[in-house]
Design a protein around this nucleic acid. Structure first.
Length: 180
DNA sequence: CGCGCGATTGTA
DNA sequence: ACAATCGCGCGT
């Protein structure tokens, strides 16, 4: 395919923590909607108790498969979460997309709100984002080391200390406007 | 086959 | 703080 600006297989075929970090600033395109990824989290395999792929199950099997595929799951019976599989085949890993900045400064903070706005449901599970029309990830804005922070992951009860959540600093400022 | 819980969010 | 809401995973 000529003129394809999307991230390639090799981009996702790396350490899931690196992929999570490097997805910051990239552009997520879903149908007619698009936005810059502002927040991610890395989830691993048998070494990560907080991950669905801590053990291989029917649901988490896709996290063991080839990188670059979507992993969409239902959480709390009412919200969906969008992930992109990382690491090589046989090595589990996926990046949770937690924040998106749309044109017009519309900020989707939170994985559930993000999927609800974009219309992402279970039908988006198992899509190869490196060659798909309805959902793709392309080059966005440059992100320097000084532009993001790493923190512990949100909403988990195990492996709580791993600093595998990545947030663009501009989003941190954005969030802080709503405190107090 | 039954049961508890979760990578969340909006409301009180 | 807490309810909403349901499919998955694990134990029986």
């Amino acid at each position: 395919m000529m003129g394809w600006l999307g991230m390639h297989y090799e981009f996702y075929n790396r350490s899931v923590v690196e992929v999570a970090r490097d997805l910051l600033g990239q552009k997520l395109v879903v149908g007619e909607l698009e936005g810059i990824i502002t927040e991610t989290e890395a989830y691993g395999g048998s070494d990560d108790e907080a991950s669905h792929a801590y053990r291989m199950t029917k649901r988490s099997a896709i996290m063991f498969g080839p990188p670059g595929y979507t992993y969409v799951y239902l959480i709390y019976g009412m919200y969906h979460c969008l992930n992109v599989v990382a690491e090589d085949v046989g090595q589990a890993g996926a990046v949770l997309i937690r924040g998106l900045m749309l044109p017009g400064k519309i900020h989707l903070n939170g994985p559930g709100k993000l999927c609800r706005y974009l219309g992402i449901t279970q039908g988006y599970n198992g899509i190869d984002v490196t060659c798909n029309e309805s959902l793709s990830i392309t080059h966005g804005v440059p992100v320097l080391d000084a532009d993001y922070i790493a923190t512990p992951r949100i909403g988990i009860s195990k492996a709580v200390h791993n600093p595998w959540r990545f947030v663009l600093k501009s989003e941190m400022n954005f969030e802080q406007k709503f405190i107090s």
